[in-house]
C-alpha cells in the first residue's frame, strides 16, 4: 500500500541522498569508505552502483582535505555531501568546519554561499569507548553559521536529509548509530518505520511532539527520544503523563514549542547524550528560565553525560549515558517532588 512502506533510518537516509542526486546533478558525496563499502553506517548504501565513482567518491583519510574541498566545491556552486565517519574525528578537520564552512557566508557579507551537508555518526551504548561514542552536537551548535540536524526516526531522517541538501547554508546532519536500524547494533524497533517513497522535506526549526502529556515535558534528540518514549510508557502505568518532544534541529531551535509545552506541564527534564556542562541541557534550561520561569513548579532537571569521557566497560558506559530507568526516576522525582 502506498505510503505504508517500512524502511530503516539508514535506508531512509540513503534513499534521500539518491533521490536528490537524481534530481540535481550538483549533488555528490565524499568520504571515507562511502563507495564500495556503502559507508560504515550505510548512509551511502547502494549509491556507488547507481551513480558511479565520479559522484560517490571514496577519499583518503584526509578529513581536513576533503571537508575543505567540499567547502571549496560548494562555494563554486556544487552541493557536496561530505561524511565524517564518526563525529569524534572532527579534530582532524575542525578548522575547515569552524572557521571556513561556518563563517564564509557571513565574512563575505552574504555574497558567497556554502551549500553543503556534513553528515556524521554520533552516539554510544555499544562499548566503542571514548573516541568513537561521543554525541558532540552542542560543540557545533555553539558556533554561529551551521544548521544542526539530528533525526531520530526513518521518516524524519529522509525528510530532513532532503531539506538539508536543498538548503543554501551549511548543514551538519548527525545520525545516531543506535537509530539507524543496523543489523549489527542493538535491535531497536523504533529504527524502522513508515517512509513514503516519493521525496519530501521537513522544515528545520519544527520540533515534533512525539507524545502528548500533561505532567512534565521531556526535551531530547536522537536515541534519547526512543528511550524517553520507552520511559513515558512506564510512567503512564504509574499515572504520570510525560510529553516527549523531539527537537529534530538545534539550529534553528523551535523555542516556541518548547516554551508552550513547559507552560502547559510546568515541569521539564532535558535528556541529552552529549556532555552535561555548557551544552544542550544547559541551553534548554536557560531558555525555559528566560521564557517560562513563572510557570515552573520545579527547577528543570538535566540528564546528560556527567562530564567524563565515554568509558568502555558496559556497566561504566551505562552509568554515564542516560537510560530508560534513569529517565523514569528523574521524571518521577520531578513530579512527586
Amino acid at each position: 500500500m502506498a505510503g505504508e512502506r517500512l524502511l530503516t533510518t539508514q535506508k531512509a537516509i540513503a534513499e534521500a541522498i539518491a533521490q536528490e542526486m537524481e534530481r540535481d546533478d550538483r549533488v555528490f558525496v565524499m568520504g571515507e569508505d562511502i563507495g564500495a563499502y556503502g559507508g560504515i553506517f550505510g548512509a551511502t548504501d547502494g549509491l556507488l552502483a547507481k551513480f558511479g565513482p565520479e559522484r560517490i567518491m571514496d577519499t583518503p583519510i584526509s578529513e581536513m582535505g576533503f571537508i575543505g574541498a567540499a567547502v571549496g566545491a560548494a562555494t563554486e556552486g556544487m552541493r557536496p555531501i561530505a561524511e565524517l565517519m564518526f563525529v569524534d574525528f572532527f579534530g582532524a578537520a575542525m578548522d575547515q568546519i569552524y572557521n571556513h564552512m561556518a563563517k564564509i557566508h557571513y565574512m563575505s557579507g552574504g555574497r558567497v554561499k556554502v551549500p553543503m551537508v556534513l553528515m556524521t555518526a554520533i552516539g554510544g551504548s555499544y562499548s566503542d569507548a571514548a573516541q568513537h561514542s561521543q554525541s558532540l552536537y552542542a560543540l557545533f551548535a555553539h558556533t554561529p553559521g551551521i544548521k544542526i540536524v539530528i533525526p531520530s526516526s526513518p521518516y524524519d531522517a529522509k525528510g530532513l536529509m532532503i531539506q538539508a541538501i536543498r538548503d543554501d547554508s551549511p548543514v551538519m546532519y548527525f545520525f545516531h548509530k543506535g537509530v539507524l536500524g543496523l543489523g549489527w547494533m542493538t535491535p531497536n524497533p523504533r529504527a524502522t518505520g513508515v517512509v513514503p517513497e516519493e521525496p519530501y522535506t521537513i522544515p528545520f526549526g519544527q520540533a515534533d511532539v512525539k507524545r502528548e502529556g500533561s505532567d512534565l515535558t521531556i526535551l531530547t534528540v536522537a536515541l534519547m527520544v526512543h528511550r524517553s518514549l520507552d520511559a513515558a510508557e512506564q510512567l503512564a502505568e504509574e499515572g504520570i503523563n510525560a510529553e516527549v518532544i523531539d527537537l529534530r534541529t538545534l539550529v534553528p531551535l523551535d523555542r516556541e514549542t518548547i516554551v508552550n509545552s513547559v507552560k502547559k506541564t510546568h515541569r521539564v527534564v532535558v535528556v541529552d547524550e552529549d556532555y552535561k556542562s555548557f551544552g544542550m541541557s544547559g541551553e534548554l534550561a536557560a531558555i525555559v528560565a528566560e521564557d517560562a520561569l513563572d510557570y515552573l513548579d520545579a527547577p528543570p532537571k538535566r540528564l546528560a553525560v556527567p562530564d567524563v569521557p565515554i568509558p568502555y566497560s558496559r556497566p561504566l558506559e551505562q552509568y554515564v549515558i542516560p537510560t530508560v530507568d534513569r529517565i523514569v526516576a528523574a521524571a518521577r522525582e520531578l513530579v512527586s517532588g
Partner: peptide
C-alpha cells in the same frame, strides 16, 4: 593553510 583544500574543492567542481 585554510584556503588550500578549498582550491582543491573548487578544482573538483571545475573538473566535474
Amino acid at each position: 593553510g585554510g584556503g588550500i583544500p578549498q582550491a582543491v574543492g573548487a578544482a573538483l567542481a571545475i573538473k566535474k
